[in-house]
Design a protein around this nucleic acid. Structure first.
Lengths: 295, 295
DNA sequence: GAATATTCATAGGTCAGGCCTATCATAATG
DNA sequence: CATTATGATAGGCCTGACCTATGAATATTC
């Protein structure tokens, strides 16, 4: 059986005439004649009763036609939705980012993407790198803004922004007296960090361990907001991404902010997605939009 | 697009693997690879995201698959109902007969057909010849038991029974005294006939006019039952088909019954159907059953 | 009722396209 | 780094869908 055969059947039933049906299908009359015979032979029943006067459906032919209409309807629906979706800048775009990026970035990014890609239906999801990576790999996510390089060759990343890391401390802290700040100057025992699982914690740890093996303070929390509050309250110092400052999160009384001189005191934000993703054009355009927002 | 393509898509989606999907479809892997590419090119979208690890559906691919399942379900249903219907002795059998036959014949015929063709769903309809013929021609009826020969070459008839015509009269009527009755003996002015439109009226008229042009009595009614009652009540005489007697309808006190000697005092019952009907085998078998019931 | 028209079926030939085997490129695995 | 697994590509074969030309049977017309 063939979709074409069902179309032919429908045409013959509608016109009650092989010749006119053939014309409506843009084929010759013998074609329809032969194809319908094959369909009938295939199914083992007579679908059309031929008269010199009219070609009319048999009862079973009528039931088959009803089902054929169902099938053809589904096929039309396939053509219809794929025609819409053939625009690469339409449909759902499901992306995520990590908690140390989303609060500073997502409002602007959503606004920018919504403006540039009006036919795109944006779905955003926040999670830690590990979970976002899983979702990327199993296809539940189209892209993610991450601060780490992909660990599997199945993912690839487009760089978005080299983000400096800043030290924050309570006003009156010794750090306030230093002109040029280096990682080695930081009192690691006063450091407040995010809890395990946040890549930003790992990055802070890596950065500090470069210069010192002193154990870090045990205090660990689950959001930058809490960390800032703790520092403001004089409970310790911390490292935060520069976007927090440009977003105004660090404009708090009693909070000192200093940049680090170390060359590697940055994290690289990137747009990560499956290397095999069929939406490369869209991803590239999205990355450009994000780059524009960030730089 | 092609039904096969949708089957391939479904197989690839189910197995997540071109090779296994190909095996399940009994084709080679390159076949699936190429056919899916063609389908994607045809629709203008990527349906499957290929990885060395797994072939997974894109979001649009998933929606297409859902519709493909609908289409394939309808196709399966077509195969299913046609497989059942390929038995020529199954499905609906819609037949009719005229009012001067049905009361004597239909109960026995329904019983006989029901016993011989248990998978046949019998639908019976009573009407006058003209309406039954219309229904036959437009396909609303598979066959009809008629007492007239088809007037159009599009219909054909299998003879079932040569039914004698009988004269009925009230006991005490002059006719009771005659040994051998001929049409010419009948007092036409006392004749009670069915109303216009009933073929049996026309046949009675034809039969009588052969011998006489005397006008017939104006009394005309719409059922044999009423005619018999009128004759019993002494209102006149009439002609009835022999089946009425074998069915016991004429076993009434005060009713005399005599056969006619004329050679043409019969009507021929036949099974009429479209010459183009695809159910010739069934019709032949049905006619044989009816013949057996009648003879 | 013979001639003409209409309609579906058949025949033969052409060509696209679906399928195969063989092979390649790339990625996962040990 | 070698091996295995997987999907893509190439080239050739062959089915089958399509066309034109024609036939057979029925309708219509004069």
């Amino acid at each position: 059986m063939n979709i074409r055969d069902l179309i032919y059947l429908r045409a013959i039933a509608r016109h009650g005439h092989f010749g006119k049906a053939a014309e409506s299908c843009n084929v010759s009359q013998p074609t329809l004649s032969v194809q319908l015979q094959k369909l009938e032979a295939d199914l083992g029943v007579t679908l059309i009763e031929r008269t010199k006067r009219s070609a009319m459906l048999t009862p079973i032919g009528d039931r088959v036609l009803g089902l054929a209409d169902d099938a053809l309807g589904a096929v039309d629906a396939i053509r219809s939705i794929t025609a819409e979706a053939s625009d690469p800048f339409s449909g759902q775009f499901r992306f995520g980012s990590i908690p140390t990026i989303s609060p500073f970035l997502v409002p602007d990014v959503l606004r920018a993407l919504g403006g540039s890609f009006p036919r795109l239906q944006l779905v955003f999801r926040e999670n830690i790198t590990e979970r976002l990576t899983e979702d990327l790999l199993n296809g539940d996510l189209d892209a993610a803004i991450l601060a780490t390089q992909p660990e599997t060759p199945r993912l690839m990343a487009i760089p978005l922004y080299d983000e400096p890391l800043l030290v924050i401390y309570p006003i009156g802290h010794d750090l306030g007296a230093l002109d040029h700040l280096d990682v080695s100057d930081l009192p690691l025992d006063q450091m407040i960090l995010l809890s395990e699982g946040h890549c930003f914690r790992d990055q802070a740890v890596d950065l500090c361990r470069l210069k010192s093996r002193t154990t870090l303070a045990e205090t660990s929390v689950t959001s930058l907001e809490t960390i800032i509050s703790l520092v403001v309250a004089g409970q310790g110092i911390s490292i935060v991404p520069a976007l927090a400052q440009s977003s105004g999160w660090l404009d708090r009384p009693n909070l000192g902010v200093k940049s680090l001189q170390n060359a590697n005191a940055t994290r690289q934000l990137n747009l990560t997605f499956r290397k095999t993703s069929p939406r490369r054009a869209l991803l590239k355009a999205v990355a450009e939009q994000m780059h524009a927002v960030l730089n």
